[in-house]
């Protein structure tokens, strides 16, 4: 009986997580492709409150070209000084997401994005897909490097977009304590 009761409680306060979230960005222009992917983002979503947090190691972004990766870490993100990027925010319409029923739920997310030691408020749309017990969170948004004090030298202004597309995708599992 007690167990049943606890189970009920934990469903109410369920949290979901991943340590293998995908974050890809496209920072290139028509002159040059600049794409990188990180597959080790961590995320926790609180299904009850809609609170969510993301964290990613900047050095974990993998590029096709080694030199680009070096420049990304050394000259742009300064990943030795700022090893992590993070997002701390909320799903504003969490009540419309039913984590126990299959479906695709449109969500609005807002919060604070921290990169390169700078924090900025952002908001974006995303989806949460529930299918046969697996939960997937997806979103796409744009950031301007200048907003995060990431300097682009004049010689590279034509290669690096000021609208960097960031694509986030994660399969979430139940967080059991």
């Amino acid at each position: 009986m007690a167990i049943t009761a606890l189970a009920v409680t934990s469903t109410t306060a369920q949290k979901y997580f991943t340590k293998e979230g995908n974050i890809t960005f496209h920072a290139g222009t028509s002159v040059e492709d600049i794409d990188a992917t990180n597959t080790t983002a961590t995320c926790v979503i609180d299904a009850a409150t809609g609170d969510m947090e993301w964290s990613v190691l900047v050095k974990g972004f993998k590029f096709k070209r080694a030199l680009m990766e070096e420049h990304f870490n050394e000259n742009y993100m300064e990943s030795n000084t700022f090893p992590k990027s993070s997002f701390k925010g909320k799903i504003d319409n969490i009540s419309s997401v039913k984590f126990t029923a299959d479906g695709t739920y449109k969500v609005k997310v807002s919060g604070k994005l921290t990169m390169h030691g700078q924090t900025k408020d952002i908001s974006t749309d995303g989806t949460i897909t529930v299918k046969g017990g697996t939960i997937t969170a997806d979103s796409k948004f744009f950031v301007n490097p200048a907003d995060f004090k990431i300097e682009v030298p004049a010689t590279n202004k034509d290669k690096i977009s000021n609208k960097v597309e960031i694509v986030v995708s994660a399969n979430l599992a139940e967080l059991k304590k």
Partner: peptide, 13 residues
């Protein structure tokens, strides 16, 4: 409590 002190969700991991 969540409202008063900010919970660090990632620390749960």
């Amino acid at each position: 409590q969540t409202d008063t002190t900010e919970v660090d969700l990632l620390s749960l991991l």
